[in-house]
Amino acid sequence: MTIAIGQSIPDVKIKKVAGDGAEDVNTAEFFAGRKVVLFAVPGAFTPTCTNNHLPGFVENYDAFKSRGIDDVAVLAVNDVHVMRAWARFTGAEDKLVFLADGNADFARALGLTLDLSAGGLGTRASRFSMLVEDGVVKQLNVEEAPGSAETSGAARLLEQLA
């Protein structure tokens, strides 16, 4: 079942890019006591994710921060090494928190997975964005088509924060 507004973030271990290394992150602890914008992409370095989805969150980082957001985080079903390379490639490593859900455990726990096996990509995170306050989902925007980044884009979430 897909997580809904008003529900708590599930407790799952994932990895966070941390300089040249990685940190284990417990999702319940990561979101506790803070306001976090989380957006997910089917894969790092993929065209829509890199060219259309991620840039809006980088460009609007200061606007999110001015609205009391503690962190803007991006999640993908990729390993932490790929996520680190993507952070550096996009120049967003000093703004966004890059979260690696290598086995799709968190995406599955959220009920937000996408089966891209036909294209050789396996199980991926659905494209979505959410606002999480103290571990509770306050806004949730899920894309219907993985090649689109409108419903889950930064502009939509900023409107919801107004």
Rank of each mutant, 00 (worst) to 15 (best):
Y61C: 03
N141W: 10
A100W: 08
M1T: 11
A145V: 13
K13Q: 13
P146Q: 05
T50P: 00
N78K: 02
P146K: 06
N52G: 00
A76K: 03
G68Q: 14
D71E: 15
S148P: 00
Y61G: 05
D71N: 14
G122R: 06
V37P: 03
E159N: 12
A118D: 15
E159S: 06
A73C: 10
S66A: 15
N51G: 03
E59D: 15
L121M: 15
D71Y: 13
L116Q: 14
L114M: 15
F64S: 07
A125L: 08
L161A: 02
F89T: 14
V17C: 01
V137R: 08
I14R: 04
T113H: 07
G147A: 10
L131R: 00
V41R: 02
C49H: 11
V41M: 12
A85Q: 11
F64Y: 12
E144P: 00
F64W: 12
L99D: 15
R124Q: 09
A155R: 08
E59F: 02
A85V: 05
E93F: 00
W86N: 03
G6I: 01
H81L: 09
Y61H: 15
L96I: 09
T90F: 00
R127Y: 09
E93R: 00
L114R: 05
T2N: 09
A155G: 09
A154Q: 09
V37H: 05
T2S: 12
T27H: 08
S8H: 10
N52Q: 13
L99W: 11
V82S: 07
F106K: 05
G21R: 02
M130H: 08
V58F: 01
T48Y: 06
D11S: 14
G33Q: 09
F64R: 03
G43F: 08
I69L: 04
A4V: 13
G21H: 01
L96N: 07
L121F: 15
S117N: 14
D62N: 11
M130S: 09
A154E: 07
E144W: 00
A28H: 09
I5C: 05
M1Q: 13
V12G: 06
F39A: 05
S117G: 13
T27W: 13
K16L: 12
D79I: 10
N78W: 03
E23L: 13
V80S: 01
R34A: 12
L112V: 09
C49Y: 08
F57E: 12
E23S: 12
K35I: 10
E159H: 01
E59P: 08
G68M: 07
V137K: 06
H53K: 06
A162V: 12
F128W: 15
Q7P: 01
N78T: 08
A28F: 05
G19D: 13
F45M: 01
V97Y: 04
F106Q: 08
V136W: 07
G135L: 07
S148N: 13
E150G: 01
A18F: 13
